[in-house]
Design a protein around this nucleic acid. Sequence first.
DNA 1: GATAAAGTTTACGTAAACGTAAAGTAGTTT
DNA 2: AAACTACTTTACGTTTACGTAAACTTTATC
Lengths: 147, 147
Amino acid sequence: MDIKKTYSISELAKEFDVTTRSIRFYEDQELLRPTRRGQTRIFSSKDRVRLKLILRGKRMGFSLAETKELFDLWDETLSGNEKQLLKMLTILENKRAQLEQQKNDIAQAEMEMDTAEARCREALAELQKKKKQQAPVKEEARQTAEN
Amino acid sequence: MDIKKTYSISELAKEFDVTTRSIRFYEDQELLRPTRRGQTRIFSSKDRVRLKLILRGKRMGFSLAETKELFDLWDETLSGNEKQLLKMLTILENKRAQLEQQKNDIAQAEMEMDTAEARCREALAELQKKKKQQAPVKEEARQTAEN
DNA sequence: GATAAAGTTTACGTAAACGTAAAGTAGTTT
DNA sequence: AAACTACTTTACGTTTACGTAAACTTTATC
């Protein structure tokens, strides 16, 4: 199905640029459930997907506990009990609200960064003007320097 | 001219739903710089804005250190040194890249939540069908119960 | 068969972001 | 004046998410 069936710990660590320590920690917290050959961990492509989700969750500001809760809930829905299904739906709604908030936050931040950048560029332009007054440059030289 | 000139610590705490402990911590970390009347803190509307920014930063997954760095850099640009201005511009570019990443993450998450929700609803529909088969209900009764 | 390479467990350490007493001050209400 | 309220400082405690070192095993290579 996927590109590959199993992965070693360092393969995953390299691919996602995390330490093996982190991966072991995620297993300890029961976010990953690798099998074993001897004492060596063997990760499935499902584990790989989960790792990807964990890291995306982190970038979005989710704690490992939150992510684990989602994983567990999702697993429970697969053995479809009605109560779990309904709970999952409400949690999904909550998460959606969170995402909306984040989108607003990002939009705001982008606007403020626009004005901040504009002010920076203005200030820089001012400095350039002063420089020119102090040390005016011949036209020919300026043309090449502006490149 | 804002709504008000100064704020007490508990006013801000209430407005933004944080503890006074947190606000004092932010001051300790030099993200806020309230003045004092005696030993009592007095927050300006600038502090209020910064608090808002701090909290938004947190929601976006920024550490207090990151936010402080931005504050400090911004302050330095106001006393416009060229080097600082250029540094600010490059940092702004980095932040923009971060925001792009976050927007991608959010979009991905939304898609996956869509499919997750769909599966939940399907599973629920299946359960409803089984229920009906086990205990079929009279039409009239169902009509009112469905409300 | 020595040695390196990649894996393991155990366990103490750490940075961030507060929580939570404890104990004191300053103003103001009864 | 006693009590209440809002504020303060000091300082130790806690959770999260790993870092880091020490001391093995297992497997591949020279």
